[in-house]
Design a protein around this nucleic acid. Structure first.
Length: 575
DNA sequence: GCCGTTTTCGGCCCGACTGTTTTCAGTCG
């Protein structure tokens, strides 16, 4: 088992090494090398599979941005544990780039300068230099820079400067947005950036606006009580830290450029770079003000216009990651994504009978209020003691309760469900008779999760082959920020799901967001079905279903792929 | 250091804001 842990660390190790290399090449003024390393660092960090697998299959060049030189470096790292170029540079610049780079306002050049003049190597050194007023004396810095760095360190330490799950701050973002809107100073206002793309985590909030009275509008915005600190404030761009611990960028742009601005600020960066490439190849130029041919504006007012003039289908924000959507849009072959409004039922919820905090009745009432057509109540099974899992007898009582409710012919149908423990050897936690009585059986792994890839995969596959599962719950088991994904061979698992007509869950609970969207795409390639679930443990968490839908869309799913979607649900459950 | 439907060489997205300069480099998204 020990070596598997090491395998899984290789992706993140290589990614940090190339980040460091990029920073050091920046200092060395090797700008293009830096860009190349940074690109590879990013693509490795986004890989679903193992770099070591690609090494064995001699497919390292398949990683985006890896050419012959970087391929050699990766091989050198795997075979010797070191990259000589990295070691040499590391000797020259003995600096903790990883943490220093997270301080707003510090890039490679300034880090290098502080290292050279004051010998600053890490955050502690930096803090001490600020406290003893040494930064402001460094050429190129001044009292304002020093003060800004001090604030940036405070912000970094208070938030961990990490990205937070979108689902946990979505309501706050919406509330703040409504507040800005309520002032009546803006003619147009829209959330852009990763929140518009419905990415599972967000680092800041991007808001695009237009106004007939821009100065007044900016002043109004800066006066809002939610703003804790102003980082930058110009004519068209304001950057602030909100008291809820997030950065927020507001752009004020001319009404005529709103579409171009929205396209630009929605990103992703990689998607935008591709669009600019296409613009250049057509003899045009694309920026946040419009699409231009020479001085002439070709399109600027609407996003649709920009895409159309570039010869592309309009791309839904969720897909804008440069993961094949540009090619598909060029060929007019983008998927018809499953619509949020079509999802009116939840396959994964809990009540206070196990580890939830709302009653059965409260959950059902909340579902009716949301105009759901169905809700599956899926309590934990008996061996998950920490969550007070139910035994056969208690499930039977619960099932009678559900049948009684359904007799009343409510607009809502309640499905008899269980989130069933898949035991260590792949056997199931409840009897076959009971499971056959259930509408929804979600197979899950919560315990003994640190096994190796072969055992974990076999465990899942055995359960899938039992013929008793409807779907498999939060398949990777990752917990954002706290737990790495289980070691699982997903090709084998998805194939087994397809062969046994078992669906794959997309769990919208904020810290799970599981499957990740790239694995959704992979699962879709095996033509499996999907179930969406909020994993709500109380009525106020039912809203997480929307984020499961967002992941489905980011994973290119269409209505026909998702059992929650009206038509599919009727087919499967005969209603 | 990567990459190719004009290219195996010569490109590589583009603009805003800040602080410290005295016209611009560094950083950010």
């Amino acid at each position: 088992m020990w070596f598997l842990t090491i395998i899984f660390m290789i992706n993140s190790e290589l990614s940090s090494i190339f980040e460091d290399l990029a920073d050091m090449e920046d200092i060395e003024e090797n700008h293009w090398e830096s860009i190349a390393y940074r690109k590879v660092a990013k693509s490795i960090s986004m890989l679903t599979g193992d770099v070591l697998d690609l090494y064995h299959e001699k497919k390292l060049r398949n990683i985006e941005g890896v050419g012959s030189a970087i391929e050699k470096k990766i091989i050198e790292y795997i075979e010797t544990g070191k990259i000589s170029k990295y070691e040499i540079l590391k000797e020259k610049y003995n600096i903790d780039f990883q943490s220093l780079r997270k301080i707003q306002g510090l890039g490679p050049k300034r880090i290098a300068l502080l290292h050279l003049t004051l010998g600053i190597k890490n955050l502690d050194d930096l803090g001490a230099a600020i406290d003893s007023d040494r930064i402001s004396k460094v050429p190129g810095f001044g009292t304002k820079s020093q003060e800004a760095l001090k604030k940036a360190i405070e912000f970094y330490k208070s938030t961990g400067a990490g990205r937070i799950p979108l689902a946990t701050c979505y309501d706050d973002i919406q509330k703040f947005f409504d507040k800005i809107n309520s002032g009546g100073k803006f003619t147009e206002l829209q959330i852009a950036g990763s929140a518009r793309r419905m990415k599972d985590t967000v680092g800041d909030i991007d808001i695009l606006s237009s106004s007939t009275i821009p100065e007044e509008a900016a002043k109004y915005f800066l006066g809002l009580e939610e703003i804790k600190h102003v980082i930058a404030s110009g004519d068209t761009k304001i950057s602030v830290i909100l008291s809820l611990g997030l950065n927020c960028d507001l752009r004020i742009i001319d009404h005529k450029s709103f579409g171009a601005g929205l396209q630009y600020f929605t990103g992703s960066k990689e998607h935008n770079i591709r669009l600019r490439d296409i613009a250049i190849s057509k003899g045009m130029k694309l920026n946040e003000y419009g699409l231009f041919k020479g001085e002439k504006v070709i399109a600027s007012e609407t996003e649709h216009g920009i895409y159309k003039e570039l010869g592309l289908q309009w791309v839904p924000p969720e897909l804008r990651e440069n993961m094949g959507e540009v090619e598909a849009a060029l060929e007019n072959s983008l998927p018809e994504l499953v619509d949020y409004d079509l999802i009116r039922g939840d396959f994964h919820t809990h009540t206070d009978a196990t580890d939830g905090h709302s009653t059965f009745r409260q959950m059902v009432d909340a579902a009716i209020k949301l105009d759901y057509k169905f809700i599956a109540i899926t309590e934990h099974s008996k061996s998950l003691k920490i969550a007070h899992g139910l035994d056969e007898k208690k499930f039977m009582a619960r099932n009678r309760e559900i049948e009684k409710f359904n007799e009343k012919k409510s607009s809502l149908r309640v499905l008899k469900g269980v989130e069933l423990e898949i035991l260590k050897d792949g056997s199931l936690d409840l009897s076959k008779g009971l499971l056959q009585e259930m509408d929804v059986v979600i197979g899950a792994i919560h315990q003994s999760v640190n096994d190796d890839i072969r055992n974990n995969t076999t465990r899942f596959v055995r359960a899938i082959e039992s013929g008793l599962l409807t779907t498999i719950a939060h398949p990777t088991g990752r917990l954002l920020g706290t737990r790495e994904p289980y070691h699982i061979d997903f090709d084998t698992v998805f194939q087994a799901c397809k062969d046994n007509n078992v669906a794959v869950e997309i769990n919208g609970f904020p810290t799970r967001s599981d499957l990740p969207y790239d694995l959704v795409k992979k699962a879709k390639s095996y033509k499996v079905n999907f179930t969406l679930g909020s994993d709500a443990h109380g009525t106020e968490q039912l809203k997480y279903l929307r984020f499961a839908t967002a992941i489905a869309r980011r994973g290119w799913l269409e209505s026909k792929d998702v059992l929650n979607a009206d038509l599919q649900f009727s087919k499967k459950f005969g209603k």
